[in-house]
Design a binder for these strands. Structure first.
Length: 355
DNA sequence: TAACACGTATTC
DNA sequence: GAATACGTGTTA
């Protein structure tokens, strides 16, 4: 809607939109400038607010009464978005782009890393802002609550996030105290485990390719559990938005394999023929194996059930995951899935693990 | 076509 | 064994 955009541009002086709703649904600076469904966006804000309400943020946790499943999830959810520097203080945990454009920056922001672009200095840090390292895991002193932020989601409004340069260990929040990050609640999110506990090895198994490193503590790398590690291409570090090449450090020092269908029960790392398929399954072969969530699409990265969709409401009988958490890949027909690499990305060869 | 129901695989 | 979630047939 051109009128909306022109309205926004004339009422901002620094790129921020001061007319809340417009800001909530537009994503200036995102390149594509998509317009999100407002309801969906608000729902995401609400879920995030609920998440913080149940974990470590002093908020009026009214939502938790309405969404018991969310509360349950929140209890088992570690502070993936540390200290409010990323999430509540001005940037939604889902980032500005991520539910539309699966690019690296979005994922990086989500998993605790600031987008590595033109950010030499934080934007106008609030007064008396402590040094980043000192307060990294602490709630932002100026936080006013998640859903109240009309500027949430604006990529450039991430005041208070510390700067991470695009090289060296700073890339991985070396300032983190990893124990702080993970042991506050003693365990990690089930979804995170499901992503990481695959002791499978689609990349060669047994860490042969440097992917599984059973005795290599992530902390030594300054890698907080939950941080996705993106293997940069061997050519000039070009960000290649291939979600299948994300990796994630976890408590178990394992990485999320880029095999989407890790096999837990047998030693075969990648999809194999499954003898029995579900009720209606034809049992015609490997393609009928139950698929796994991709783990990197926007719904997969969502940690909290909405609690209100039909799937949540019919948890017992429906046996379905929350609608808002349903993997985009799984929504597609099983036969229509394109495997791992887009044509422009030479799988594997273009990536390497760098530490 | 979306929502629902159910069988079943998977994980804890 | 319970909880979760995928796949698919049925129904509105």
């Amino acid at each position: 809607d051109h009128s909306v955009h022109s309205h926004s541009s004339t009422t901002t002086t620094n790129g921020h939109n001061h007319h809340g709703q417009c800001c909530a649904v537009t994503m200036d600076g995102c390149g594509l400038t998509p317009v999100l469904d407002y309801t969906a966006e608000m729902e995401r804000y609400r879920s995030f607010a609920n998440f913080y309400a149940k974990t470590n943020v002093n908020m009026n946790a009214v939502n938790s009464m309405n969404f018991p499943q969310s509360a349950k999830l929140a209890r088992i959810t570690p502070p993936m978005f540390p200290g409010g520097r990323l999430g509540v203080a001005g940037v939604t945990p889902w980032g500005c782009h991520d539910n539309v454009n699966m690019n690296i920056n979005a994922a990086a922001m989500l998993w605790g890393r600031k987008p590595p672009v033109h950010q030499a200095t934080p934007l106008a840090p609030p007064t008396t802002h402590p040094p980043p390292l000192a307060t990294h895991m602490q709630p932002h002193p100026h936080r006013t609550g998640g859903e109240g932020k009309q500027h949430g989601g604006h990529a450039s409004s991430s005041q208070g996030q510390e700067t991470h340069h695009h090289h060296g260990n700073n890339n991985f929040l070396s300032g983190y105290t990893t124990t702080d990050h993970m042991t506050k609640q003693g365990h990690t999110h089930q979804d995170m485990l499901s992503l990481s506990d695959r002791n499978s090895s689609c990349n060669g198994g047994g860490g042969a390719n440097g992917v599984n490193m059973p005795n290599f503590p992530a902390g030594m790398l300054g890698l907080p559990p939950g941080v996705i590690v993106m293997a940069m291409g061997s050519h000039n570090g070009v960000n290649i938005p291939d979600s299948s090449h994300f990796q994630m450090a976890t408590n178990h020092n394992q990485m999320l394999s880029d095999c989407h269908h890790a096999n837990q029960t047998n030693s075969s790392p990648c999809p194999s023929t499954s003898p029995g398929m579900t009720s209606g399954g034809q049992g015609s072969g490997a393609s009928k194996r139950k698929r796994k969530r991709c783990g990197v699409c926007a719904p997969c990265r969502r940690l909290i059930n909405c609690g209100v969709c039909s799937a949540c409401r019919n948890r017992k009988t429906g046996h379905q995951i929350c609608k808002f958490r349903k993997c985009d890949e799984l929504k597609k027909k099983a036969g229509s899935i394109q495997l791992e690499s887009p044509p422009s990305v030479p799988s594997g060869e273009a990536f390497r693990w760098f530490f």
